[in-house]
Design a protein around this nucleic acid. Structure first.
Lengths: 159, 159
DNA sequence: CCCAAATTGTTCGTATACAAACGATGCAGC
DNA sequence: GCTGCATCGTTTGTATACGAACAATTTGGG
């Protein structure tokens, strides 16, 4: 059986018969969430205005600007990062001088984190970019569709 | 200022004033997409019935069962994986004996991929699990909400 | 007072995710 | 026929993502 020209794709007989397995990748929630997330990451990278900053680092900084000081573990839980991931994100933010860390006098297992002055400054500078990123991510939707989408997405986020 | 008991969280004054920066992490599309995707990955891991299989590998297998044979590059594009990622996923699927690879006689830059017999068998066995995963991911939504959500999510996926 | 269980944070290993660079190959235009 | 550009796949490096294991510390119950 010769392969088709150009793309070299051969459709299997089950696909020709309206996909007998009933599994269309393009319709699966997981696949679509991944793609939507990838598109969001690309918008973030193009819009944030600091090519050393990643979405996770930005989330940690923004949450720290809300709470002023918190433990590393709690920051991870507030930003949906597990302990190993949090450790790496914190390490890079400290290396950039954007946050500071001190042991908790009361519970010596804990480390307490705060924004440094540079971190606070960056947060003030990039907050508007953060909102623009969300806006651009949701750009294909009308105002009421955005509301509906976010409401449903929150229910799927386990929060 | 003494830290609060238990969680050691101090709310910054901007947060007390209804979050002056206007950036609430929990309301951002990017954050919510990430959490929804994490929840999906956890459901996948718990439901797929093969703890050596990852969502990306499963997607590649399911797409290959549709198309019978295709190039590595095209498979990557059909499953939203870039070339470097695809290379790693393919390597692991070949190592498990689930797919086979041969050079394209017509265009020697290309490699052509197909499911092996073991891969085809695994696809038959796990297709239903794949549909169950999507079902469980969308479980918090009613039927009409699912339809609405997927429609909107597709628009945000760039497809 | 002791001990088991839990919590916090680090490290390791594996799997994406993707930009950038590179080599091999193909193609179109001159 | 040659060349520039594009495509394909690999490799490298960095950043998550997360399970598992470990050490240090805390806590509550016996």
């Amino acid at each position: 059986m010769p392969l088709q020209a150009d793309h070299r794709v051969t459709i299997s007989s089950s696909a020709e018969n309206s996909d007998a397995s009933g599994y269309v990748l393009e319709d699966q929630a997981g696949h679509l969430l991944r793609r939507a997330h990838q598109r969001h990451s690309a918008i973030f990278q193009a819009t944030i205005g600091d090519d050393q900053l990643t979405p996770l680092q930005f989330a940690a900084l923004m949450k720290l600007s809300d709470v002023a000081e918190t433990s590393q573990n709690l920051l991870g839980r507030m930003t949906a990062m597990d302990a190993a991931t949090m450790q790496g994100v914190i390490k890079r933010l400290i290396a950039r001088g954007l946050i500071e860390r001190r042991p908790d006098d009361v519970d010596r297992r804990r480390l307490l984190l705060t924004l440094s002055q540079d971190g606070a400054k960056l947060v003030r500078e990039l907050s508007a970019h953060g909102r623009a990123i969300t806006d651009q991510t949701l750009e294909p939707l009308s105002t009421s569709e955005r509301e509906t989408f976010l409401k449903l997405l929150k229910r799927l986020s386990g929060q």
